[in-house]
């Protein structure tokens, strides 16, 4: 049974399609990074999953059941923007959670408050944006949920606290929790996620296990003296998934045979040729660029 299941989800605002026929399953214990450019439908997907907006079509289940208020006893949501009560103190927010959630763990809350150096007496309007995010993270993790839906969870945090949030996510997943999160910081996703789904224009353009997506793919990069160079027959080489030309720089996304292709490129007379491992950023940019093929989607 998938922890999160999204079936044939479409959301239209008038003529505009925000999300188009999205299918996504997240298995238990998975950390799934949902990536996409601004306006690609990530937040719309989160909000529909949580019942905050109604889908045009589609079905959602969490832990095998449709969403009900009881679902939120074991599901924590951190929205894109901090939405705390600005006139309440940090301690009052924790008190609110203690009264609201049967699973609230005061010891865990204290531990998280200390981790993020939160002053419990401060009103949240006196906190920086990053500290407000930290309060939301601490609240979310203090109820020890089975499912996390985190929309830009490390937004506004300094690098130390960003790392702390990623460690919390990884730790929760190791304990059996399922995490669906979005971030514009691809390095964070690469560090925490073992599964990636990429949205573009409301459509799922890439979805899969991160290691599988990276696979044996490489980037062969050649730098030429001028922009006037020819790639001859490389563009139709079946070992090459895609070629990007950016001025004097050529990047070939190679499925196999990277050394041979590098050797062929050397024959074109570049200043330098290098071979790199494919990063998640490369996968992301490849998936969302206008010329991107969708052959990674499944």
């Amino acid at each position: 049974m998938n922890t999160i299941s999204i079936r044939n989800f479409t959301k239209r605002y008038g003529e505009q399609v925000a999300v188009d026929a999205l299918n996504l399953d997240v298995e238990p214990g998975t950390v799934c990074g949902l990536l996409g450019p601004n306006g690609s439908g990530k937040t719309t997907t989160f909000k529909s999953l949580l019942g905050l907006i109604r889908p045009t079509t589609g079905e959602f289940t969490i832990e095998g059941k449709p969403l009900t208020p009881a679902t939120f006893e074991t599901l924590a949501y951190v929205p894109e923007r901090a939405t705390l009560y600005e006139w309440m103190t940090v301690a009052q927010h924790f008190e609110l959670y203690r009264r609201t959630y049967a699973r609230f763990d005061p010891a865990r809350a204290a531990e998280l408050g200390a981790l993020f150096k939160l002053d419990s007496r401060k009103k949240t309007k006196r906190l920086s944006k990053g500290q407000q995010t930290a309060v939301q993270i601490a609240l979310a993790f203090s109820i020890r949920p089975n499912v996390f839906v985190l929309d830009e969870p490390a937004s506004g945090l300094d690098p130390i606290f960003q790392r702390a949030v990623l460690d919390l996510i990884i730790d929760a997943a190791a304990g059996g929790a399922t995490v669906l999160f979005s971030s514009h910081q691809i390095g964070q996703v690469e560090r925490a996620a073992n599964r990636v789904a990429i949205l573009k224009g409301g459509k799922l353009v890439l979805d899969g296990d991160l290691d599988t997506l990276k696979g044996d793919q490489k980037i062969v990069e050649a730098v030429f003296d001028s922009e006037a160079y020819s790639v001859n027959g490389l563009a139709s080489d079946p070992r090459i998934r895609r070629i990007d030309r950016n001025g004097r720089i050529l990047r070939a996304y190679v499925k196999s045979g990277a050394p041979e292709i590098a050797h062929e490129l050397e024959g074109l007379g570049p200043k330098a040729v290098s071979i790199y491992d494919l990063s998640l950023e490369d996968i992301f940019l490849g998936a969302v660029s206008d010329s991107a093929a969708t052959n990674g989607t499944h």
């Binding site: 905050l52 208020p69 679902t71 939120f72 929205p79 894109e80 939405t83 009560y85």
Partner: peptide, 16 residues
Amino acid sequence: NGRGGFAFTKPLARER
């Protein structure tokens, strides 16, 4: 209403 669903993502029905 302007809190990004803070009240609506709690284990309580909205009418309650």
